[in-house]
């Protein structure tokens, strides 16, 4: 760790922002692969089932986000005394609630309200 070359003050960052050349290169090659495969799957239409393709590329995105978090953003449970991980977990929970909640509610709103609109239009 090159971080240890510095004296005193630098350690306040707790290794949160430091990486190694090896770490960056591993992260880069992993993310190139994790980007290339979804593009290849969609552009060449490798899998006939669109639903399956969607699930697979979402899985690749999730893995790639974790790779970026670890190798580029240097997230680990110990950085900043665990507070940055705690903030991240809290944010992820909020994001999941917002995304799944919005999609769930609005899907049912569409599914249940649209026929109503139709009926009204068909009324004399």
């Amino acid at each position: 760790m090159s971080a240890h070359d510095h004296t005193g003050h630098d350690h306040a960052h707790g290794g949160a922002a430091h990486g190694s050349l090896k770490g960056y290169l591993i992260g880069f090659f992993l993310s190139v692969i994790l980007t290339a495969i979804p593009f290849w799957l969609v552009m060449d239409g490798v899998i006939d089932n669109k639903q399956a393709t969607a699930v697979i590329i979402m899985a690749f995105a999730a893995v790639q986000i974790v790779v970026h978090m670890i190798f580029f953003l240097h997230m680990n449970p110990a950085s900043e005394g665990g507070w940055s991980m705690l903030a991240l977990i809290f944010t992820v929970i909020l994001v999941v609630i917002v995304l799944s909640g919005s999609l769930w509610v609005m899907y049912h709103l569409n599914a249940n309200m649209m026929p109503g609109l139709h009926e009204m239009r068909e009324m004399p």
Binding site: T35, P38, I57, M58, F60, A61, I65
Partner: peptide, 10 residues
Amino acid sequence: IGVFTFVYLM
């Protein structure tokens, strides 16, 4: 990553 996956690819 989210943009190219959810917006463009999907």
